[in-house]
Design a protein around this nucleic acid. Structure first.
Length: 570
DNA sequence: GCCGTTTTCGGCCCGACTGTTTTCAGTCG
């Protein structure tokens, strides 16, 4: 994928230009980078099929950026980028990832303290050198150290949303080999964990050598750690490792079971087997030397006295006890969702028209879709004022007439201000089908004020859903300080739903929050927060999150048909 | 540098918050 490399370079160019106080160009490069990052087709392919002209058709890409893309495809480098980087040779990507650190501060840190990377930065902060700089102080130094610590926690891990397409591609390629009879992801990917350390894949084949040969010689393999007939391990270009195991048909279920559950889940299942006088390993369930199960996972679980346990639940967080008692939840399935309730359009910071979104929703097989653009205060995101929101509502009425079997719901995403008030008057909100409310500023507010702020918003009868309720962003910042139990109580009292935001780096609520909410009887919705129709498929990530949080279909409002759904939002 | 029923130049719709420099620059969404 050249797109990610190009996006990274353009983001950096934007930062370098920002440092030089060039006007407007940084925004242009950022936009091009952002669009490239969400493109399905590789820029190399686009260029091959349609040349410069096709590149210029990418939104945000004009003549000059198209030429730079061409240069990169032909030579593997972009001269102007290298020139800029020479003037300020810092690891911009790593440094800007520290929360609160932007290009201007990075420039000062480089000029005064020769800080080029995270290591330099951490040392300087620990040595107390940063607080002495002009415009910096003790607090900035502390924040920098906290930011670095946060980054370190996520180091070497990748978001599920990034890894899933990669795994899909590897599996598709392997599947095409006639030697591969069956293939499945295992490990944390199969459990759909929100971040992934490495990729595990299992396959059945009678000719493992051929399969392994293909696997280690794929393009995209950077290094071969090990290669044998049953197991091979490689480092992928994207920076993570991928293991492939080839097993025999009769052991496939046992191997899947063995390589999918986390360590504690596996210890418990093996203990259960032992108590029954059986042995469970990756080859099967054995009584003495006789294999009594192993072909399918269902068979394996059955043999040790358990019902089938969904992969997402296999984390030893009570699923085995529940299974033994017959109390396993009937978790929501991947095709239960009937519509997406958070989507942005051109009217604010999205890139599609309402009509385009509606078409895409039909393709997803949805029965409804809510248009929920930003409002008032969030100007950079094109926040709608009253007049524009009213106009959009009229527009939706018109478009609705063109669609059969799809209802476009009128909505918006209002900002919860610091005092808990909203940035759109109640009489306007009352006209909408659905009102989402969210915190977009003042993340560092203390726990008590933040909790009160959110509860005040929930008490507004127009507010139907609190979206991305904890504000965390994977690898970038933790949740804001919040008394979650109080939030749950308020949600129950005010009949406000909470969102499971499916956007790959949000996944907010997280699994443990969801489980707590489900236990408290809170209604949830799963939304993608799409800003482009090719983000609709993120829904899978949100559903996975819900499944990991033991949510059932009945807990998720957007599994209901539209009339019933809207009753919740009166 | 991109974009355009303002079409080849002149816009690019920012506002809140934070920390620090007590008046504002930098960051974020």
């Amino acid at each position: 994928m050249r797109n990610f490399e190009l996006a990274k370079i353009f983001y950096e160019i934007a930062d370098f230009l920002e440092i030089r106080e060039v006007e407007f160009k940084p925004r242009a490069y950022e936009k091009a980078a952002r669009v490239l990052g969400t493109l399905e087709k590789d820029a190399g392919e686009i260029y091959k099929d349609g040349g410069l002209k096709a590149l210029e058709d990418i939104p945000g890409v004009g003549k000059h950026i198209a030429l730079k893309i061409e240069e990169f495809i032909k030579t593997g480098r972009i001269k102007e980028y290298e020139k800029l980087k020479k003037k300020c040779p810092v690891d911009m990507e790593a440094l800007t990832a520290v929360e609160g650190l932007g290009p201007k501060m990075i420039k000062v840190l480089y000029q005064k303290l020769k800080i080029r990377n995270l290591k330099d930065l951490e040392k300087a902060a620990k040595d107390g050198k940063i607080r002495k700089l002009e415009k910096f102080g003790e607090k900035s130094e502390k924040n920098i150290l906290q930011g670095i610590a946060f980054l370190k926690k996520g180091k070497g891990r990748f978001s599920l949303g990034f890894v899933l397409p990669l795994v899909g591609k590897i599996i598709r390629e392997l599947k095409e080999l006639k030697e591969v009879q069956e293939i499945s992801p295992a490990g944390s990917i199969r459990r759909m964990k929100e971040t992934i350390g490495d990729i595990d894949i299992l396959a059945i084949s009678k000719n493992p050598e051929k399969v392994m040969d293909f696997f280690v010689n794929r393009s995209g393999v950077e290094k071969v750690w090990a290669k044998g007939p049953t197991k091979s391990s490689v480092r992928l270009r994207e920076g993570l490792d991928c293991d492939l195991r080839v097993i025999k048909k009769e052991s496939f279920g046992a191997a899947l079971q063995y390589f999918t559950g986390n360590k504690d889940h596996n210890i418990l299942t093996r203990r259960l087997a032992m108590n029954k006088g059986l042995k469970l390993n990756e080859y099967g369930v054995f009584r003495g030397k006789k294999r009594i199960a192993g072909r399918t996972e269902k068979e394996v679980y059955q043999a040790i006295g358990l019902p089938y346990i969904e992969p997402e639940l296999r984390t030893n967080t009570g699923e085995i006890e529940a299974a033994l008692k017959g109390h396993l939840p009937k978790i929501i399935s991947y095709n239960d969702i009937l519509g997406d309730l958070q989507v942005h359009t051109k009217w604010s910071d999205g890139s599609d028209t309402i009509e385009g979104i509606a078409e895409a929703a039909k393709k997803m097989g949805y029965q409804y879709i809510a248009i929920t653009d930003h409002t008032g205060d969030l100007k950079i995101a094109g926040g709608l004022d009253e007049e524009r929101l009213l106009k959009q509502m009229e527009e939706i009425d018109k478009i609705n007439k063109k669609f059969k079997n799809l209802k476009i719901l009128k909505g918006c995403e209002v900002n919860i201000r610091k005092d808990g008030s909203l940035d759109m008057p109640d009489e306007i909100l009352a006209k909408l089908d659905i009102v989402l409310a969210a915190v977009h500023s003042g993340f560092k507010t203390d726990k008590d004020s933040m909790t009160k702020r959110m509860i005040k918003a929930m008490e507004n009868p127009n507010v139907d859903v609190i979206v991305h309720p904890t504000g965390r962003v994977l690898f970038r910042r933790g949740p804001y300080q919040l008394d979650f139990e109080e939030i749950l109580k308020a949600a129950k009292r005010t009949k406000t739903a909470l969102e499971i935001n499916a956007f790959p780096d949000r996944l907010d609520l997280k699994d443990t929050d969801i489980r707590q909410a489900v236990e408290a009887g809170i209604k949830l919705v799963i939304n993608t927060d799409s800003h482009h129709q090719n983000q609709f498929h993120y829904m899978e990530l949100g559903i996975a999150q819900a499944r990991r949080g033991w949510a059932e279909k009945k807990d998720i409002l957007n599994t209901q048909p539209v009339e019933k759904l809207l009753e919740n939002f009166l």
